[in-house]
């Protein structure tokens, strides 16, 4: 026992002072994927909360961490003491399980068929359902002048993608997307938690609805979804007066639309600071 403790602290000492992992985030579907995974794996972390209205995610210090100017990103100390900055929610999740999940709580052993298949689903979320639901939200919520074709295009595609997930859940023995709870559930769940906001009704997808509740009952999810502040979606959807929804829509519209205008400006003239 004593020897184990001793060798542990020797290993710690050789790493230098151990900094907790930092998560750069704000209350969004892509951000909570990471806080939920960190809670599941019980990894200590600090949170830096971005302010999209003030556009802190486009400040030079942050672009040095994530040149794409989006959240989430992390800074972590690797076992040799060096620091790593990583972004893209999918790649952060892969990093976290490979570094910290030696018991395969949220993935499968590297090199196994199950694990390769896991990544088909993970890429499907980050390259398919994520971006398409994002476009649906944009044309439903942010654009003031409604464009019926764009709304229809992205509603249809998002609902098609939900139906792929619905079918997978219907055939699953575990009640989760794969044979057990994994980072794939975390990825999809974080998007599905915003489905009402995008304009997708879970009444259309009973299997997803059942799975959504099952995942929500995990303590780590209940905790991680409220980082760095309470998850607005449920509050919004339960708000019968529609006042909160209106406020939230105005808030997100304002940062998205000024952001787009600023980005377009920046494209014409390269920012002299970069």
């Amino acid at each position: 026992m004593a020897a184990a403790i001793h060798s542990n602290s020797a290993a710690e000492a050789s790493k230098g002072p151990q900094q907790p992992l930092t998560l750069y985030t704000t209350q969004t579907p892509n951000g909570i994927k990471i806080s939920i995974a960190l809670e599941e794996l019980e990894i200590p972390y600090k949170v830096f909360k971005h302010d999209f209205v003030a556009r802190t995610q486009k400040e030079p210090w942050y672009l040095a961490i994530n040149p794409n100017g989006r959240i989430p990103a992390i800074t972590d100390t690797f076992s040799d003491g060096s620091q790593i900055h990583l972004w893209e929610s999918g790649s952060i999740l892969k990093y976290l399980v490979e570094q910290y999940d030696k018991d395969f709580k949220l993935w499968y052993p590297a090199g196994t068929r199950e694990n390769y298949e896991l990544f088909s689903w993970l890429f499907f979320q980050i390259g398919g359902l994520g971006p398409m639901q994002g476009q649906m939200t944009h044309f439903n919520r942010h654009v003031t002048e409604k464009i019926p074709y764009a709304i229809e295009r992205y509603s249809n595609e998002t609902r098609r993608l939900y139906s792929v997930l619905e079918k997978q859940l219907a055939t699953s023995q575990s009640g989760f997307i794969l044979s057990k709870f994994t980072i794939v559930d975390i990825c999809f769940w974080s998007m599905v938690a915003a489905s009402g906001w995008a304009g997708v009704s879970l009444a259309e997808f009973p299997e997803i609805h059942r799975w959504y509740e099952k995942v929500l009952s995990r303590p780590s999810v209940a905790k991680g979804m409220n980082v760095p502040e309470p998850h607005p979606i449920q509050v919004l959807m339960d708000d019968k007066t529609g006042q909160k929804a209106k406020e939230f829509e105005e808030y997100s519209r304002s940062w998205v639309m000024t952001g787009m205008a600023k980005d377009a400006e920046g494209l014409k003239k390269r920012d002299p600071a970069c």
Binding site: N68, D80, S82, I84, L86, W87, E88, S91, F123, G127
Partner: peptide, 19 residues
């Protein structure tokens, strides 16, 4: 390390941000 993770990160950006 860290190149392995950086390549995975850029691939994710291709899939999620470019495509």
């Amino acid at each position: 390390f860290p190149e392995k993770y950086f390549t995975q990160q850029w691939l994710a950006f291709q899939i999620s941000g470019q495509g």
